[in-house]
Amino acid sequence: MARSTVPIRNGEDVVRVRQEVRRLAIEAGLGLVDQTKVVTAASELARNTLDYGKGGQAVMDIVQNGARRGVRIVFEDNGPGIADIELALKDGYTSGKGMGLGLGGARRLCNEFAIVSTPGKGTMVTIARWK
């Protein structure tokens, strides 16, 4: 199925990620609230990729699991990585200028959330929202 890759190098790219996720979410048949949730989660994660990961990319697909359709997005960067993922997922924790809601908030807004990070190598966050 259609795969879309959006590079994340600046603030405009974060907007592009939102628009592309919205497009795929509509195509996958997600309702308005689900669309809004997954687009918001993607916005948080795209900003993390930019601010903390020093840029990277978002790769998104429409996915099918039996009768269910959904959207999956993978955010990848080659930044400094996250040393303590549990801590990074806590609300209110931030290593930068944010509010500390990005990672934990994104996890709450999705049906699937996985994060793999190697300090010094980079971070990969995968989210999915099903219909």
Binding site: V33, K37, T40, E44
Partner: peptide, 14 residues
Amino acid sequence: MRPAVAITLVELGL
């Protein structure tokens, strides 16, 4: 504020 945005904001923790 749109209803879907309000629902999402609260779930986000904001």
